[in-house]
Simulated assay, not measured.
Amino acid sequence: MNFFDAFSFVNMRFLMDGLRVTVEVSVLSIIFSFIIGGFIGVIRFSNIPFLSKILGVVVDIIRNLPLLLIIFFTYFALPQIGICFDIFWSAVVALSIFESAMLSEVFRAGLNAVPKGQMEAGLSTGLTYVETMRSIVVPQAFKSMIPAIVSQLISLIKDTSLAVIISLPELTHNAKIIYGQNENYVLPMFLAMTIAYFIVCYALSLVSKYLETRQYNY
């Protein structure tokens, strides 16, 4: 069997359909986890009584659970209490929950890295706490957070492959179907997956470098 037969138009189109689903799940999960993780990180940094501690416990629990378990929970366990998601949204919810916990720690660490004098200086000029956070603390913290955030988001993209366990038709799932039909296609499909994941993740790392450069130029 010719090695290049695996790269037929039909197979490549099917594989690209899987890549499209991977990107869609990744983008939605990135958006949700960035918003939720940032919100939790700010709350924990602000030490709001009770709420910060409760969120801290929740974050610690989620961070110490396997992502695969969270995917199983959203797809198989939540319907038992009346909360039902299809395969696509189960993957998005699971990834968003897991990555929100991870990113919240990145945000909290970044905010803690800003000298306390910056907050005090902002408050002393008459700015409110929220205004000081928005205008002074967060912009400074974000510079140091960019590498860690992008690293976590790249991990998120690769983690979408775990959703193959609930038959999400993403890149790994579709590649598995293709080489499942012909064992000679295993190596070509792994090569194709490697290239596809590399392109997506490398593109994100380039965006990170661009943002980092812009931040340091100001």
Rank of each mutant, 00 (worst) to 15 (best):
I136P: 03
E131Y: 09
Y179D: 08
G82R: 13
G82M: 12
K176S: 15
L191M: 12
Y210W: 15
Y185E: 12
L19S: 08
A91S: 10
N47Q: 15
S135H: 04
I54E: 13
S161I: 05
I62S: 04
D5T: 12
Y218D: 15
V200P: 01
L55V: 08
Y179T: 07
I48M: 12
C84N: 13
D60Q: 09
L187P: 00
T213L: 09
F85R: 01
I35P: 00
M133S: 09
I36F: 12
I154S: 07
N2D: 05
S8V: 05
K209C: 00
W89D: 05
N182T: 05
V150H: 06
I154P: 02
S52E: 11
V92D: 06
T172Y: 14
L191T: 12
V106N: 05
Y185P: 13
S100E: 10
F88R: 10
L67P: 07
F14C: 03
A196N: 06
P169C: 13
I178L: 08
V207P: 04
G41D: 09
L171T: 01
Y218N: 15
M193N: 13
N112W: 10
R63G: 12
L95F: 12
F190Y: 15
I136E: 02
V93E: 06
E24P: 01
A163H: 07
L68V: 02
T128Y: 06
R214T: 08
V93K: 09
L69V: 10
L51E: 06
H173A: 11
I157P: 04
S135M: 05
A94I: 00
E170N: 02
Q140F: 01
E212S: 03
I146N: 05
G110F: 01
V25A: 04
S29W: 04
I146P: 05
V114I: 13
Q181R: 14
F4N: 07
F9K: 14
T132D: 04
L78N: 11
Y197K: 03
V164T: 15
A175P: 11
R108N: 07
N112E: 14
V92F: 08
I177M: 14
F39H: 08
D159M: 08
W89G: 08
I177A: 13
A141H: 07
I87T: 12
L15Y: 00
F88W: 11
S100Y: 11
F88T: 05
L67S: 06
I157N: 04
F32S: 14
N64S: 08
T172I: 12
A94L: 02
L156R: 00
A94V: 01
M145P: 09
Y179M: 10
S161P: 11
L67I: 06
N182A: 10
A113Y: 07
S8M: 08
V27N: 06
F39I: 13
I30Q: 02
N184L: 12
I71M: 09
I154G: 03
A196V: 04
V42H: 03
T22D: 02
V25Y: 01
E99T: 06
N11R: 10
S29L: 04
R108M: 06
L156N: 00
Y129D: 05
V138N: 10
L65N: 09
P169L: 14
N217V: 06
E105I: 01
G38H: 00
S100V: 06
T172S: 12
L211V: 11
V57E: 14
